[in-house]
Amino acid sequence: MAVCWFVGLTTLDVVHRAARRPGANEKVTATRQDVAAGGPAANAAVTAAALKVRAVLVSALGAGPVAQAARADLDSREVQVHDVAGPDEGFALAVSAVLVDDATGERSVVSADAALAVAPAPTAEGLAALPRPDVVLFDGHHPAVARAVLSFVDGMVPRPRVVLDGGRWRPLFAELLPAADVAALSADFAVPAGVAPGAADAAHGALLLGARSVVVTHGADPVAWSVPDVPAGGLAGRSGRVPVPRVTARDTLGAGDTFHGALAAALAEGAALPDACAAAVRVASARVAHVGPRSWLAHLPELPA
Rank of each mutant, 00 (worst) to 15 (best):
R107E: 09
P274Y: 05
P158D: 07
A36C: 07
S108V: 04
S108N: 10
P192I: 08
H141V: 01
P243I: 07
P293F: 06
E125D: 15
F152T: 08
A129R: 12
A30W: 03
R20C: 03
P171W: 03
G38N: 04
G38L: 02
D221P: 05
A146C: 10
R20S: 11
A18L: 00
L235P: 12
P65M: 09
P122N: 11
V135K: 10
A18D: 01
G155H: 11
V7N: 10
A2F: 04
L127S: 13
A49E: 12
A115D: 10
W225T: 12
V56Y: 00
V81D: 02
D165S: 04
V191S: 12
S111K: 09
A70S: 14
G86E: 01
A284S: 10
Q68I: 04
E78C: 15
H141K: 06
E106W: 06
V35K: 10
P65A: 09
R170P: 13
F91D: 03
D83G: 07
G256T: 02
P245G: 13
V15D: 10
D139C: 08
A41E: 13
P120S: 08
V109R: 11
A124K: 08
A55R: 11
E175C: 08
V216E: 00
K27E: 14
V163E: 07
T217W: 02
S239T: 03
V288H: 03
E175H: 07
P197S: 09
V79G: 05
A60V: 11
D83E: 08
R54F: 07
V153H: 02
A280P: 15
L172P: 04
A36S: 07
A174T: 12
D73N: 15
C277A: 05
V145T: 15
P133M: 08
L303P: 12
P131Y: 06
G8A: 05
A203P: 03
T31A: 13
S76T: 12
P171Y: 00
A18G: 10
A183T: 00
R294Q: 08
P197G: 12
D102E: 13
R20G: 02
P197R: 05
K27Y: 10
V145E: 14
V100I: 15
P222N: 01
L253K: 11
A264I: 09
S186A: 01
D275Q: 13
A48H: 12
L93W: 02
N43S: 04
A200R: 15
R168Y: 12
P160K: 00
L209P: 01
G254Q: 07
P87F: 00
A284L: 07
L137S: 05
E106G: 11
L209M: 11
R77E: 14
Q33C: 15
A117M: 05
A42W: 01
V215Q: 00
S239Q: 04
L164E: 00
V215N: 00
W169I: 00
L150D: 04
V46S: 14
V95E: 13
R71E: 14
A119L: 09
H142N: 15
L57Q: 09
D275W: 05
A203M: 09
A129P: 15
R294A: 11
P171L: 00
P22E: 03
A37V: 03
L12G: 06
